Each structure stands twice: as structure tokens, then as C-alpha cells.
Simulated scan of single mutants.
Amino acid sequence: MKLKRVLQYAQFLLQDTVEAGDIVVDATAGNGYDTTFLAQLVGENGHVFAFDVQKQAVESTQNRLQVEGLSKRVSVILDGHENVDQYVKETISAAIFNLGYLPGSEHEVITKPNTTLKAIESLLSLLKVGGIIVLVIYYGHEGGKEERDQVIEYVSHLPQKKVHALRYEFINQKNDPPFIIALEKMKEL
């Protein structure tokens, strides 16, 4: 087996967890790639809730889903992921974050530690036992290292008997390469 790149590993984790009929969350819809991937995994009877604070991201995601014929499986929500519990009431099997900024856009709008941590906490309570939250952490921008450090601090103190926290990264790459933090819920919190 070859080492999987960060995004390949994120998809591998989701593919290994999500089943047809599941409810899942894309906490940062961005350009819709993860949303589309999740919509394919959940099948016709599942559902994806995709969040983004930028209208451009919501429109890009909706367009991508339309082209792929997956729109009916997804609720694309123009709101921050910190408000996930206002929209999602069901148990979820997985969630994904791409922390940082919207690729191809201005870098002024970035994910922030306080909203990200609130979203993680809400998603952990919605997550089924055996479910997974994948955080792809891009931190090579202004404010990125602060968010990275706060996320690491938060997940490092989750009770190990209830949540397994994994860090997956390449340690010999330059220019702040992204890495993954994956949280697997082992018992109810």
C-alpha cells in the first residue's frame, strides 16, 4: 500500500464510514467537491447538510450538484457551521471540514477557531458511535496557525475512552502542508 495524500486519506476515511441512507455534514462546502463526494456515498435515501458562509461557495456547490444530478440529496445552507445544530436534528455518521479559506477566492474570509470549535462540539453530540469527523487543516494563511493550535488543543483533551483522535500528516513537506485530524466516536459523550 502506498501512503495516501491528505485529501485521498480524508476520502478513504469517509468511504470507510458512510453507508447508503446515512445523514452526513459538510461543514465547509467550498466549491462542492466534498459535498458531491458525500452525496454519492449516502445514495438516494441519505442526505447531506452542507454549510458555507459565502454565497459564492453555496452557488458553486449547488451548480456542481446540479451537474451531477445530486441536488435532491443535499441541503446547501448559507450559514456558518457553528449553527449546525439549528438545522441538523438527526444522528449523523460523518462530517468533514476543510479549514482555511475558499480556494480561488479572496483570503479575507477564513474559518475561525471559535466557530470551528463550536461546530466540532455540536457535531460530536450528533455523531453516532462509530462515526467520524474529518478535519483537513490548512493553516498557511493569516489566522491559520491560531485555529490549528486551538483545534489541536481542544481535540487533545477529548476523553480517550469516548473519542479517538488521530493526526495524519507528512512531516517533511515545506510551506505549511495541510494535515488531517480525524475523530472517531467510541462511546456517547
Rank of each mutant, 00 (worst) to 15 (best):
K2Y: 12
L3P: 10
R5F: 06
V6E: 01
L7V: 13
Q8S: 11
A10P: 00
L13T: 01
L13W: 00
T17Y: 03
V18S: 02
V18C: 03
E19L: 06
A20V: 01
A20G: 04
G21V: 10
G21E: 00
D22G: 01
I23V: 06
I23F: 00
V25H: 06
A29L: 10
Y33H: 15
Y33P: 15
Y33F: 15
Y33K: 12
D34I: 06
T35F: 15
T36F: 07
Q40I: 07
L41C: 10
L41I: 15
V42P: 02
V42K: 07
G43K: 13
G43L: 09
E44C: 04
N45V: 03
N45L: 00
G46A: 09
V48G: 00
F49W: 12
F51V: 15
F51Y: 10
V58F: 04
E59W: 09
S60T: 12
N63Q: 14
N63M: 15
G69F: 01
G69M: 09
S71I: 12
K72N: 15
K72V: 05
K72E: 14
R73L: 08
V74P: 01
S75H: 09
I77G: 00
L78T: 04
H81E: 06
H81K: 07
N83Q: 03
V84R: 03
V84L: 03
D85T: 03
Q86E: 11
Y87S: 01
V88Y: 00
V88C: 01
K89L: 12
E90R: 02
E90C: 05
T91D: 08
T91F: 05
I92T: 01
S93G: 09
A94Q: 05
F97C: 01
G100Q: 08
G100F: 11
E106M: 09
E108V: 07
V109K: 05
V109D: 02
I110N: 04
I110K: 05
I110Y: 12
K112V: 13
K112P: 08
N114P: 05
N114W: 02
N114F: 12
T115A: 07
L117T: 01
A119H: 14
E121M: 03
E121H: 14
S122C: 14
S122A: 12
L123A: 08
L123K: 00
L127R: 05
K128C: 08
K128Y: 09
V129E: 11
V129D: 07
G130M: 08
G131M: 13
V134A: 06
L135I: 14
I137R: 11
Y138E: 02
G140Q: 04
H141M: 09
E142I: 12
E142M: 09
G144W: 02
E146M: 02
R148I: 10
R148D: 00
D149L: 10
D149M: 13
V151C: 10
I152A: 10
I152W: 11
E153M: 04
V155S: 01
H157M: 12
Q160K: 15
Q160S: 05
K161L: 13
K161I: 15
K162N: 07
K162C: 11
H164P: 07
A165W: 03
L166G: 06
L166C: 11
R167M: 14
R167H: 10
R167L: 13
I171F: 07
I171E: 06
I171V: 14
I171M: 14
N172C: 05
N175P: 01
D176P: 08
P177W: 08
P177Y: 07
F179W: 05
A182N: 11
A182W: 02
L183G: 00
E184N: 10
M186Q: 14
M186P: 05
E188A: 10
